[in-house]
């Protein structure tokens, strides 16, 4: 792979991708027409003057490609972009994506088309082909730059740029919840209720505490060498636990408990009244 230093003139320096985009690309890829190996599509998002491009949404565009030619459904691309713009006027075209393991010859043609749709499009390559020998998905981003002798033959070169994953808090929380699905034989993620959520968080917490305790014990018994950095963060952690004497803490817990009990009493009462009211009306 040809590595080049990207000059500021070539536009984007970094692509930030949201999980919504990646998950959609996977979906498009799974739904591609039977005889087609790859899907391509438009990336929507925003870009700033510092060369940072953020992709927050995408849609796939029907296309066909051969060794050295490519045809994409421009009509569809336009119509779909219109729809997306109605839904969210803040998003504009920032580039395009393709699945596959490497940049193919027709990519230049498609990139050409997107250069007309937006300034300095970013190309994202998603390698979704996963198997035992290559178990990880790969995401890469490129910008194009021209090279060659001035006034003579010119060529287009795809220069890799940095790709980072980014997410809104909501997206990140959703991703975290959904990650539990991969250990489930039915791939099902059930949504926990309030108490279940506390329970699972507490379980995680105790597991992590056990890990820390195991580490501290192994250092104390000289089975493992102490890591000063780890020690410092442990000390910091211990210091964040507020020091309360038993009475203050008990007071706090008691008053909170009283509040909660009163609340649940009131709520249950309202509920009983409601049921009563309805029975009366229905009589």
């Amino acid at each position: 792979l040809f590595q080049a230093k990207v000059s500021s003139s070539s536009g984007a320096l970094q692509l930030r991708v949201h999980p919504t985009v990646l998950l959609q690309i996977i979906d498009f890829y799974e739904r591609r027409p039977e005889n087609q190996l790859q899907v391509i599509g438009t990336l929507l998002g925003s870009s700033d003057s510092k060369g940072q491009v953020t992709a927050t949404n995408c849609f796939s565009v029907p296309h066909s490609e051969s060794e050295d030619s490519a045809a994409i459904d421009i009509e569809f691309q336009r119509a779909m972009f219109e729809l997306h713009r109605k839904a969210n006027p803040g998003e504009s075209i920032v580039g395009w994506f393709s699945t596959g393991s490497s940049i193919r010859a027709p990519s230049v043609l498609i990139h050409d088309y997107y250069s007309r749709e937006c300034r300095r499009p970013v190309h994202m390559l998603v390698n979704a082909e996963v198997d035992d020998s290559r178990p990880r998905m790969q995401f890469r981003a490129f910008v194009s730059t021209t090279f060659g002798v001035p006034g003579k033959t010119k060529g287009t070169m795809f220069v890799p740029i940095e790709l980072r994953n980014e997410a809104y808090d909501d997206e990140a929380a959703a991703c975290r919840v959904m990650q539990s699905g991969r250990n489930n034989i039915k791939r099902a993620v059930s949504l926990l209720d309030d108490v279940g959520n506390v329970r699972s968080a507490a379980r995680n917490l105790s597991r992590m505490l056990e890990q820390v305790i195991a580490y501290v014990d192994s250092v104390l018994t000289d089975q493992q060498k102490a890591d000063p950095q780890l020690g410092r963060s442990l000390a910091q952690l211990v210091n964040t636990v507020p020091k309360l004497d038993k009475e203050t803490f008990d007071d706090m817990v008691n008053s909170s408990t009283k509040d909660l009990l009163m609340l649940s009493y009131l709520t249950t009462m309202i509920r009983t009244h409601l049921d009563f009211n309805e029975k009366l009306i229905a009589m």
Binding site: L23, D27, A128, R136, E166, G181, R182, K186, A188
Partner: peptide, 18 residues
């Protein structure tokens, strides 16, 4: 919620970065 196998691979991939 149910995800395809491939989507689960992706989510696992994102575990550290997101």
């Amino acid at each position: 919620i149910r995800n395809s196998h491939l989507a689960n691979v992706l989510l696992a991939e994102l575990e550290d970065s997101v």
